[in-house]
């Protein structure tokens, strides 16, 4: 499956950690700011264009000390959460 960013957030460093700040149209939504662990930030940084899940898993295996089963589970869980929050969609 391919995923792509909705480009409706800013991913940036705050004091050495990655935070996701949504671009929103309502004051009521402005309280949602998320800190991301290194894996989550890495995944988001690599889905600017439509990207196959398999490609993201391969990139994780190249850049993090993990095994394929764990990487696949991490990617699946994280992207499902990002889709649910509206920051990522399936392409």
């Amino acid at each position: 499956m391919k995923y792509v960013s909705n480009n409706n957030y800013v991913l940036n460093d705050i004091c050495g950690e990655k935070v996701l700040v949504p671009i929103v149209n309502s004051v009521a939504q402005m309280d949602f700011i998320y800190t991301l662990n290194s894996t989550g930030a890495f995944i988001l940084e690599h889905i600017a264009e439509a990207t196959e899940t398999e490609t993201i898993v391969d990139l994780l295996l190249e850049n993090f000390e993990t095994d394929r089963t764990t990487a696949e589970a991490d990617v699946c869980e994280f992207l499902n959460e990002m889709v649910a929050k509206g920051y990522v969609r399936t392409a």
């Binding site: 705050i14 004091c15 950690e17 935070v19 309280d31 700011i33 800190t35």
Partner: peptide, 10 residues
């Protein structure tokens, strides 16, 4: 760290 920054930013 980020925890301080986020709480301040709120």
């Amino acid at each position: 760290g980020a925890a301080a920054a986020m709480q301040f930013m709120t």
